[in-house]
Amino acid sequence: MTGALSRRALSRRALSRRALSRRALLRGLAAAVGALYAVAPAGRASASPALSAGPALPVDPVTVATLEAFADTIVPGVKRYPGDHALAGAAPGPGAVQAGAITLLRAPELGLTPLLPGLAGLLDVEATGYATTHGRPPLSLQPPLSLQPPLSLQPPFVGLRYADRAALAADLLRPGTPDQKLWLLLALVSALAFDTAAHLHTPDAVRHGHPGLAHLRFPQPDADGLWRYPRFSYQRTLADPHPSTTPSGSPA
């Protein structure tokens, strides 16, 4: 596939996505998730050490790159390698993508995998619209970037700079906007990967230096995987109680 062909394909894809009713996608979310689970109920979560061990469905590279760029907008991180376009490199240290956002999005327990291409496509339509209305040339109109296949796969959202990605995300996530719940779901999963390592057992994640939990300085558990704090209090009287406090300790 040449870069030009790829860009034409992207453009056609974007146009076809425009015709897709957002309302229909939103309405279809619940139904599709329900249908997925009806035919393929997820196994008990505790049976597998990590969600990535589940039977993740294949997702195309354009979708992955777009969703990586979105997750990286929520919790930005360094680029993983020279020429990493999905990650904007807006912040030092690992971000949501390194923390496992795509693994979590594809987790069988969430049941979102069949919807990811549609969500990524919708995001790329929004990115194309944003680019054209903010004086940023949409990817398909940019001078040839390269004929190398990896670059030819850059979708429109990936083509935006971090500041533009963040501005577009802020627009999409503003309460009351049409598809806000969709983008909030994506943002929530991205953040959960970073702040909770939701695809891993927490004791394992902390011990193995999960980048998000390490960033928080999440404490280490005891040897049995449980947390205990024998020292937990300043052990000082630090305020006067309210004068109307009743004997049970409640307000009057």
């Binding site: 979560a45 969600l51 987790a107 939701a198 695809h199 004791p203 995987g225």
Partner: peptide
């Protein structure tokens, strides 16, 4: 009851 934020633990 586990000390765990993994999906499939507290989410039950």
């Amino acid at each position: 009851f586990t000390h765990d934020l993994r999906l499939g633990t507290y989410t039950r």
